[in-house]
Design a protein around this nucleic acid. Structure first.
Lengths: 232, 232
DNA sequence: AAGTATTATTGTCCATTTGACAATAAGTGA
DNA sequence: TCACTTATTGTCAAATGGACAATAATACTT
């Protein structure tokens, strides 16, 4: 049984790492920090820190993300846990990855605490990271791609009002492919988005129709079991 | 940064719970143990125990599963981590769920260590479990269903040699639905299974053709990128 | 031996979806 | 007005999917 009375079982600590994804200029980016302290000083890393002994994992993630990047009120979700005994040079630290998707332009991230710098870095241009963060990022990006394929999470990264071409370009980037415009539009016919009365502004060509996610219709579809998202 | 030098961060411990699924008599079952010790003595629970301070999570899961059920050499995969501060009555225990799929008849599970009894219990007939194990089981079963939909994992639970009707019944049970036999067979045309020279034995009706998973063809398809599994 | 019951297997028809590609629309700027 | 660019819609054939019918192989019954 759980031998929690044994002192030698309390020799590890537990952390949370926050992988924050966004979409901008046709690229999926991730929010990283530059470390101001050893180990891995000046290396880029996923924002993360220790969980307090009496703190819930999700609460801890939100606190840690805020402490390091000033991002507040972010809707985090759990991803994988990483626990190789030697993954942290200073001791046994098991870390639980959490991720969130957000609209980059709706937030302002700013380095604080022991973060020296923060930056949105396109996923394909991420440098080598501290600790085993390359593996954590890669595994969590895989999870994101899986979610994009079967859940309407793209709308968390797209602007509130988006064009169908923007939506398509997000999928093309994630799945590393190109799609036919006409066929993409047919494919998303069953996805609950609503046509707005507005059009794109300040473009030097025919302005595109703007759309937004139709939350009400989505909820209704889920309730009546008429919903299956398939985007691959 | 990680303040692992602070003693008060070493007041939690870490465990692994092993959710083992199998398929028998048209039902997906899970391997549970009856606890021989407090807390929750005599309650059914998911087999799990503490991870050693220098032990890898996956190694720990295999060791723990063997200690409690004598199941050896099981291919476990990580699922969700559960860490509510009060989930364990005797202290802060964060647990990482691991799951495996196996052919029930190819293994013999036997209670040992502090497990008083082990049993394969159909997923729809599981009694109330110890700790937050109801939530852990339910979340992991959801994960299983998701995997069944997009990966060829059904073959880990089906007998080595199976009939198409058995395969269909697994999906019908998991997705809680019924499918047309002819259409099911069309749907799986692209799945790498091979027709064997044998037929079903000892049935009182027309014996069905036996099939087995075609590992070679599967690997070839993955390599050449000609593989997408869609079973929903 | 013939007929019945049961499950396996295959085929057909039609509606829907998918993929490739063409045609048209609505803006800007020269 | 014309060229240029991206948006949007339409077409057609192929592939897929769902409902349902027809046939096959085995054991069991009479």
């Amino acid at each position: 049984m759980y031998k929690i009375e044994f002192d030698n079982f309390f020799t590890y600590s537990f952390s949370s790492d926050c992988i924050i994804f966004g979409f901008r200029n046709g690229e999926i980016s991730v929010l990283l920090i530059k470390r101001a302290m050893e180990p891995f000083k000046d290396k880029w890393a996923i924002p993360g820190d220790l969980v307090y002994p009496d703190e819930d994992l999700l609460d801890a993630s939100k606190r840690i993300l805020f402490e390091l990047t000033q991002l507040n009120d972010i809707d985090l979700h759990q991803a994988q846990t990483f626990g190789k005994p030697n993954r942290h040079p200073q001791g046994r630290v098991i870390t639980c990855a959490h991720f969130a998707l957000l609209r980059i332009n709706d937030f302002h991230a700013e380095a604080s605490s022991w973060a020296k710098e923060v930056a949105w870095i396109p996923i394909h241009k991420v440098p080598e990271l501290a600790f085993d963060h390359d593996e954590i990022l890669s595994s969590t990006y895989d999870l994101l791609k899986q979610k994009l394929a079967i859940e309407p999470v793209c709308f968390d990264m797209l602007p509130e009002k988006f064009t169908l071409s923007e939506m398509q370009s997000l999928y093309e980037y994630a799945f590393d492919t190109t799609m036919d415009k006409a066929n993409f539009r047919k494919k998303i016919k069953s996805i609950p988005i609503k046509k707005l009365s507005e059009k794109q502004q300040n473009v030097k060509h025919r302005p595109a129709q703007l759309f937004s996610f139709d939350q009400d219709r989505f909820i209704e579809m889920v309730k009546t079991d008429h919903y299956t998202f398939k985007m691959y």
